[in-house]
Design a protein around this nucleic acid. Structure first.
Lengths: 151, 151
DNA sequence: TATTGTTATACTCTATAACTATA
DNA sequence: TATAGTTATAGAGTATAACAATA
């Protein structure tokens, strides 16, 4: 997809304004999305750990602690809680008997999917408040935003 | 600003994909932005209260509690901490002697501005990783995202 | 009697320090 | 000796319940 090449060149000041709008909107939207929760009994970090496991397949407690910016003892507790809830499985590490391997269960996968579904539904309802042109602009930008988030 | 009217009409499935990309990107970006903190001694909610005060001018503790989705006793504590740090002022309510009015100080305003500046700088650096076309799309979408966040 | 805000107290989440088992 | 994970304990942050002052 491409744009007309006669689009006005924006000044540095407009770039700054766009960055500022991006930052504040992302922060505000995220706060509102976070409130749309499927399971009130899961803490934000527990949800985040499940998300990480969904992306990475499986991981050791140490890896999870580093990825979630949490200290190892905290992750021990989180993993134990998730295991008690039937959302993760712990297995011995095949090569290093000090380590363990944490894997998400089918139940966790279903819960995450339901969580995504619910938040998407909420966001879609919000998006319905935009007019055609506005949604077109946002739809075009969505993949870019996705790339940005992973840079 | 307008777009070519011959832009292909996207199907419902593409809408869903865009909403999904939007949701996950917003959540991921917000987590990363949140890590860029100016003052480690302020909790996320304390920061959020200052942001709310910056937007709304002043508010009573009860109003703040409702806006931040926090119980009144928690807000009592938060406001007391902010006052001790010189970031808010408490004054008697002019009409109702049960209530109080919380206002941010100049110091808080300066701190918030510095926080925005720092996070914008971080985000701008990330944006530099996009190519021209991508940034153009995002720049166009930024005001729309802003509208969406306030719907 | 209802509402605003506070005090007293308990729970949740995370951190640090010390310990165990394995490399 | 170093590393992965755990246990014990303490410190934030928030909640609920009971209370004081005002409407």
């Amino acid at each position: 997809m491409s744009y007309p090449k006669d689009m006005p060149d924006l000044t540095h000041g407009d770039d700054a304004a766009a960055v500022n709008a991006l930052r504040s909107s992302v922060m505000r939207l995220s706060r509102r999305i976070k409130h749309q929760r499927v399971d009130e009994s899961l803490s934000p970090t527990e949800m985040s750990v499940l998300g990480t496991l969904a992306r990475c397949g499986s991981a050791t407690p140490g890896e999870l602690a580093r990825k979630e910016h949490v200290q190892p003892p905290s992750m021990t507790r989180i993993v134990a809680l998730l295991e008690a809830k039937g959302l993760v499985r712990l297995e011995p590490h095949p090569e290093d008997r000090r380590q363990k391997v944490v894997t998400q269960t089918e139940q966790a996968e279903a819960m995450l999917e339901e969580s995504r579904r619910r938040r998407n539904a909420w966001l879609a309802e919000l998006v319905a408040g935009l007019d055609e042109d506005e949604w077109a602009k946002l739809r075009v930008a969505a993949p870019v935003l996705e790339k940005l988030a992973h840079l």
